[in-house]
């Protein structure tokens, strides 16, 4: 008995143009992610070396928050952690996708897309929070 394929006749593939576009995208994402990783590392270094100085300066600039200077340091570390996660995801996307295109590996390709998806999910959540802050700012006028 003949076995008919369930796959549609017209489907989307990673053709030559897609490969070229994705390879160029991964070059830029790799550059951005490496620069980001270096930036986050520098930020963490500054926080570790000059955390107490920053906390003191913060307290002097805004006397109302005196004693809460350490909170600023914790917030900076949290920001660095989120940024670190984002640039790592971007790096994973560029590495997995490039390797998938070179080896024609579907699983690696999907892992690359998954990393980019999580990157955009975090980006989207930050965008929503920023928008809420802007709306709050609008009502203060």
């Amino acid at each position: 008995m003949d076995e008919a394929s369930n796959e549609p006749l017209i489907d989307i593939h990673v053709d030559d143009q897609t490969t070229s576009l994705l390879k160029e995208t991964t070059k830029w994402t790799r550059f951005i992610s490496i620069a980001g990783i270096v930036g986050v590392a520098l930020l963490l270094l500054v926080i570790l070396l000059a955390g107490s100085i920053i906390a003191n300066l913060w307290s002097r600039l805004i006397p109302a928050v005196e004693g809460f200077g350490n909170i600023l340091v914790v917030i900076c570390i949290l920001i660095a952690a989120v940024l670190g996660l984002m640039v790592t995801l971007l790096y994973r996307f560029s590495t997995f996708t490039k390797r998938a295109l070179d080896l024609q590996d579907q699983q690696l390709f999907n892992r690359g897309l998954s990393s980019l998806k999580i990157y955009f999910v975090i980006n989207g959540l930050i965008a929503i929070l920023t928008l809420l802050a802007s709306i709050t700012n609008l009502f203060k006028i």
Binding site: D11, I12, H13, V14, D105, Q106, F109, N110, K117
Partner: peptide, 14 residues
């Protein structure tokens, strides 16, 4: 397919 790499259901959902 002549293209080894494609968009399976998982990739399409992603």
């Amino acid at each position: 397919s002549i293209f080894k790499l494609g968009f399976d259901e998982n990739a399409k959902e992603l």
